[in-house]
Amino acid sequence: MSLPLIVLAAAASFTCENPSHHDGDNVRCSNLGGAMRLQGIDAPEMPGACRPGRRCVDGDPFAARDQLRRLTRGKTLQCVQEDTDTYGRAIVNCTAGTVNISCAMIASGLAEPRYAALDCNDQAAEPVAPQSLAQRAPEPQQAPMPGPVPDPVPERVIVPADTPAPALLVIPGPGMTFLLMLGLALINAVTWAMFALDKRRAVAGRSRERIAETKLLGWALVGGTPAAWYAMKQLRHKSSKDSFKQSLLLISGLQFGAVIGLLWWQFSA
């Protein structure tokens, strides 16, 4: 290598301390800012990270990330920036001692060579990821020991840290709360007006123009219960009719129970 190339390579090299990884081809350094991509490899994307139309590597993204962590845990990496990708991230070639990290990931079978050529012929030996049970050689069968058969161990399910918890009940924001309160206010205003109009017609003896009780109870059912009870007390309308009061009481109980049930469901989970 000529002297100018040696000087350029030295200027672009740096150390990466306390490396951490989001996936199997990404590296962050505690002494530097921003994420970097390892040169020449492509690892499986984390759930939801594969953009539509892009060819993403098949495989277990968590196994690839964990293998990369094993290769770099407790080590200071020596890296050289080779290029910059379309997202502005540095593309780096890193080694831990004599082990080239990109080559070790390819050798583990958890990443594929892609985007750039790598010289892995002189790669030092490095333990690869442990084989799965399906890949291990069968072991000699041993005679079962007498005693109770233990319960099977449930399969471990790995959930990404950024996966949101399912919402049981969506609590509306300030804007939606205002609209709900405005709607309830309008319903109660209409309910009060219906009771007042029916009272006036009853006093005037206009029985044919009276408002049906089912309509009054219907307005109470959709949210006008407070106005219905207040109108019964203030206007003294329907207050002496037991069948109407019992129906309104049943509606009020159902609404109150529904509110209590939703609140319990939300806050007890």
Rank of each mutant, 00 (worst) to 15 (best):
R210H: 11
A204Y: 05
M232L: 09
L262S: 07
Q142G: 07
A220P: 07
I260E: 03
L180S: 06
D42F: 09
L38V: 11
P4A: 03
L184P: 00
R210L: 14
V222H: 01
L68A: 13
D198Q: 02
I187Y: 12
S247L: 11
A134F: 13
C79T: 06
Q78I: 04
P154K: 08
W265Y: 14
V149R: 12
V99E: 01
S13F: 03
G183K: 03
V80T: 15
D242A: 15
P160Y: 06
Q142Y: 03
L262Y: 08
S247M: 11
T225Y: 05
A43N: 06
P127M: 09
A111I: 00
A204N: 10
V57Y: 00
M181D: 01
L68N: 15
L180E: 02
N18E: 09
K75Q: 07
V7S: 09
G223F: 02
G183P: 00
I158N: 13
E45I: 08
G224Y: 13
L71S: 00
T15G: 04
G24I: 03
T225R: 03
S108K: 12
S252D: 03
K233V: 09
I187M: 12
A137N: 05
W264Q: 13
G97C: 01
A49T: 06
L8I: 12
K215L: 15
D66S: 13
A125Y: 12
L235M: 09
A196M: 05
Y115A: 02
L71H: 00
G257E: 03
L179V: 14
K233M: 09
D60I: 03
A269G: 15
L262T: 07
N26M: 13
R69K: 15
F256D: 00
S20T: 15
H22R: 08
N31D: 14
R236S: 11
M145Q: 14
W219Q: 08
I158L: 15
G218H: 05
A96T: 02
D25Y: 09
N31E: 04
D23V: 07
C29S: 00
P144R: 10
